[in-house]
Amino acid sequence: MLGPGNEIAATEALQTWPDKLQVGGGICETNASKWIERGAAKVIVTSYLFPSGNFSQQRLEALATQVGRDRVVVDLSCRRRSEGGWVVAMDRWQRLTDMVVDEQTLKKLAGFCSEFLVHAADVEGLCGGIDRELVECLGKWSPLPATYAGGASSVDDLDLVNRLSRGRVDLTIGSALDIFGGSMVRFDDCVAWNRRVEPAAEHT
């Protein structure tokens, strides 16, 4: 829910498919339970965890206590650092925080959430290819299910992310997808890919 006027639409979506969708945007300790009650399977939290740009362990623990860690997704959307690696960015990815995205960070957060969402902000919305290094690192580092977003431009990127992460990271496709006005990826092809891959994964 980026910007005003989204709560009605978000509520309608959650009520249409209860306990299946995740909701994010302005999530905090005071409203998280409300969204779970409205039908959200999980709440996605970012900026609330970084008051003044510094990570607050206390806020994360309070949120996990309120709705249960199984209902919390921590968004670690990030930008590359000039010296290498990535740092979490907030406020529409314009403001860098004090949190580095690495194995130690993911392990530290894992006790208070059930999933990670990681936008590669440097390539987000450009449809120019994924951040391969970040995907590969997430596959090695994350002790929890992780979803990567940023730069996908082809249904083949589903195979690429699956291969680079050794099947441990999912891919979300935005700007390139036809149902969002894109012309590079067909939603039906993504559905077909998932139907083909999921049965195989169940037997590995």
Rank of each mutant, 00 (worst) to 15 (best):
3 G>E: 09
5 G>K: 04
5 G>P: 15
6 N>K: 11
6 N>P: 11
6 N>S: 10
8 I>Y: 07
9 A>K: 12
17 W>D: 03
18 P>I: 00
18 P>W: 08
20 K>I: 06
25 G>I: 03
28 C>T: 14
30 T>A: 07
33 S>W: 09
33 S>K: 11
34 K>F: 15
35 W>M: 02
38 R>I: 03
39 G>R: 04
39 G>L: 03
40 A>W: 12
41 A>S: 13
45 V>F: 06
45 V>Q: 03
45 V>E: 06
47 S>M: 07
52 S>N: 15
52 S>W: 10
54 N>Y: 12
56 S>R: 03
60 L>K: 01
63 L>G: 08
63 L>I: 05
65 T>D: 15
66 Q>A: 11
69 R>P: 15
70 D>H: 13
73 V>S: 07
73 V>G: 10
75 D>C: 07
75 D>Q: 06
76 L>N: 08
77 S>M: 01
78 C>E: 11
81 R>S: 11
82 S>C: 05
83 E>W: 07
85 G>S: 06
86 W>C: 00
92 R>G: 14
93 W>C: 02
93 W>F: 06
97 T>Y: 12
101 V>A: 03
102 D>L: 00
103 E>I: 00
104 Q>G: 09
104 Q>I: 08
104 Q>D: 14
105 T>H: 06
108 K>F: 13
109 L>E: 11
110 A>R: 03
111 G>A: 13
111 G>C: 05
112 F>W: 15
112 F>E: 06
112 F>V: 00
116 F>G: 03
118 V>L: 04
121 A>S: 14
121 A>M: 07
128 G>P: 14
128 G>C: 07
128 G>T: 09
130 I>E: 11
131 D>F: 02
131 D>N: 03
133 E>S: 10
135 V>P: 14
135 V>A: 02
135 V>H: 00
137 C>R: 13
139 G>W: 09
141 W>N: 02
144 L>R: 03
145 P>Y: 10
145 P>D: 07
146 A>E: 12
150 G>M: 01
151 G>K: 00
151 G>A: 02
152 A>L: 04
153 S>H: 14
155 V>E: 15
160 L>G: 10
161 V>H: 08
163 R>F: 11
163 R>I: 08
165 S>R: 01
165 S>I: 02
166 R>V: 09
168 R>V: 05
168 R>S: 11
168 R>C: 05
170 D>Y: 09
172 T>G: 10
173 I>P: 14
175 S>R: 14
176 A>W: 06
182 G>C: 04
183 S>T: 15
187 F>M: 03
187 F>Y: 14
190 C>E: 12
191 V>R: 06
191 V>A: 03
191 V>I: 14
194 N>S: 11
197 V>I: 14
198 E>G: 03
198 E>F: 14
203 H>P: 02
203 H>K: 09
